[in-house]
């Protein structure tokens, strides 16, 4: 009897719940069903909401509001940054590798086909003439040593995480990169000073003239066996001088812009500067590789000019005949040997 009453109560309760649920679901279904008479010009909130394209038509960047002092941190999206990152991470390693490895391959081909340019002996062989004084050698080597450190630490920015980190591990790479960054930032200053010194000291000897045109037409004595006339610096050396002056100035300006962030330009300008800095940097390294080759392995007797400062008179007569004549006429006593200097044998 009690069970029967319980069943009846259960049915009654279920029927009431079903009725309530049906009454509640009716309006809900009516709301979700597509209105048959709704106007077609009803606003679409999604279509009219603010999107990225619309914001970029109003301003080049998308920013927010922040409470920390550095208002630059409010910048949320700067589209040029994606392009810069794409260039730095995708194109730059390939451009750098092509420039530097390409130059190494070219120099190797030149060495194995042309061979080392040998010293031509004459009756003047063994006698020395001063080619670069102490200050000239000092400024050359200060710039050169800084350049090598700057080049290696600069290449670490491009290739380090790809080539070095898998070899030495992330911890050693992090420590090395930190010190490389210090070296890059601080040795840039003696490098810039050296560029200024070299420009001032050697400018007067590097003004292009007709002799350089004839030197270039004759192939510079490297391609053939005949040595064209040259003053203190031949056309090839003048190209190196102006390349170092131009690239050095460009690297200095772009480097300073990055060294003092936001002092001269915004984030987009700094990214452009970084791109220029890295492109000129790899071209600079490739060109200096050729300079190092011809000043050491490529030409016998050339290193002495920057090593001891004195070169063999026979070498100087072959490669810089007009300069030797001028120097001898200036001293009017033959080669620039002082009283205490004995001719090298």
């Amino acid at each position: 009897m009690r069970r029967g009453r319980t069943l009846i109560r259960t049915f009654v309760a279920a029927a009431m719940l079903a009725g309530v649920a049906g009454a509640g679901a009716g309006p809900a279904l009516a709301q979700t069903a597509p209105p048959t008479t709704a106007p077609t010009t009803a606003p679409n909130p999604t279509a009219e909401s603010v999107n990225e394209d619309l914001l970029f038509k109003q301003a080049p960047t998308i920013g927010g509001r922040i409470s920390i002092p550095d208002q630059k941190a409010a910048n949320l999206i700067q589209p040029q940054g994606r392009e810069w990152r794409g260039f730095h991470e995708t194109w730059m390693p390939w451009i750098g590798a092509a420039a530097i490895l390409g130059m190494v391959v070219l120099l190797a081909l030149f060495y194995f086909t042309r061979g080392r340019i040998r010293l031509e002996h004459s009756e003047e062989s063994g006698r020395k003439i001063l080619r670069f004084n102490g200050f000239e050698r000092f400024t050359h080597w200060m710039t050169a040593t800084c350049f090598i450190i700057l080049a290696l630490s600069g290449l670490n920015y491009i290739f380090g995480k790809r080539l070095l980190m898998p070899v030495i591990g992330p911890d050693a790479f992090a420590t090395l990169s930190q010190w490389a960054k210090y070296a890059h930032v601080y040795l840039a200053w003696p490098f810039m000073l050296g560029i200024i010194f070299m420009f001032v000291v050697w400018l007067k000897d590097n003004i292009p003239n007709r002799i350089d045109v004839a030197w270039i037409k004759a192939g510079g004595g490297i391609i053939g066996d005949k040595h064209p006339h040259a003053e203190r610096f031949n056309a090839g050396q003048k190209v190196v001088f102006w390349m170092v002056a131009g690239f050095g100035a460009a690297m200095s300006v772009t480097g300073l812009v990055m060294l003092f962030p936001f002092a001269a330009t915004d984030i987009n300008g700094m990214q452009v500067m970084q791109g220029i800095h890295s492109l000129i940097g790899v071209a600079f390294i490739a060109a200096i590789l050729a300079h190092i080759y011809i000043g050491s392995l490529g030409m016998e007797g050339a290193y002495d000019a920057m090593g001891s400062g004195k070169v063999d008179l026979a070498w100087a007569r072959v490669h810089h005949d007009l300069w030797v004549e001028k120097e001898q006429a200036r001293t009017a006593s033959g080669p620039q040997l002082r009283a205490h200097q004995a001719p090298a044998e």
Partner: peptide, 23 residues
Amino acid sequence: MKAFAVAVICAVAIGIAASYVLS
């Protein structure tokens, strides 16, 4: 060699001086 040694010493000295000035 003397010019090279002086150049390296000067480069390091100028670099250290730059680090102090920039700091």
